[in-house]
Amino acid sequence: MKEIVVISGKGGTGKTSITASLAYLGGKDIVLADCDVDAADMHLLMQPDFGQAKDFYSGLIAEIRQDDCIQCGKCADICRFDAIPVIDGKYIVDPLSCEGCGYCPRVCPTDAIDMLDMNVGKWYVSTIKTGTTMVHAKLGIGADNSGKLVAHVKNEAKRIAEEEDKEIVLVDGSPGVGCPVVSSLSGAKFVVLVTEPTVSGLHDLKRVYELVDKFNIPAGCIINKADLNPQVSAEIESFLKQENIGHIASLPYDENFTAAMTQGKTIVEYDENNLNEILTQSWAKIKQIA
């Protein structure tokens, strides 16, 4: 079983649309894992049935038991996040400001503060329109994606892939360069970098590749909207050469991307011409290299 991870560093490059197309082409040979939990949009294209739903807990949050509180104010004094305001004469934890550091219960003279596990969202195991399984998650407001949630989604996908003897786990990776993307990459056999030829696209590609390189994972790149700026496209290509990253394909700027999405379809279902052909070849290439 191989784990293939798609990442982009920056938002809006078409990563999710491309990953969904690859997943569609992979059909029943793959298990899909959506680790782009901050903007989890994959489900809009894959029609999951939300078959199994489970709560996900991460981090802690303080809660003051008012019956035991003697209003001494020690907790509010030591809190660096101004998370314990006085409301109507009572010390109350503001859940959006509390970082769960656990300092306040340690100074409370009456042990009136509990640290509770924070329910940050739900995760799902779904059957999608290709008949295969997708593991995905939805975070609540103000909840941060974390290495833990990403690891959890991926582990579940891998467990299912092993059980059902699937060849590939295809992962829509997290954005940015922080802990969630580190967790997305850990264990990957091959990384697909999706980028666009804009000043910010190239900048973010370089940043995220630093991480891929550190983990020593072979990578290939898809340049989306390549004809939008031929000059930056050329810069990206020379960066790929210099770093020995395979250039899997270049896709043209094409409004069929949006048209497909509007109908809740992947690009390869919607487009029968150019885009379809390039993506089909890309998937074949990826399977071959990975």
């Binding site: 030591i78 660096r80 996040f81 970082e99 550091c101 656990g102 300092y103 340690r106």
Partner: peptide, 9 residues
């Protein structure tokens, strides 16, 4: 997270 717990305790 700069909560100061380790330092002050």
């Amino acid at each position: 997270h700069s909560c100061y717990a380790c330092s002050e305790l």
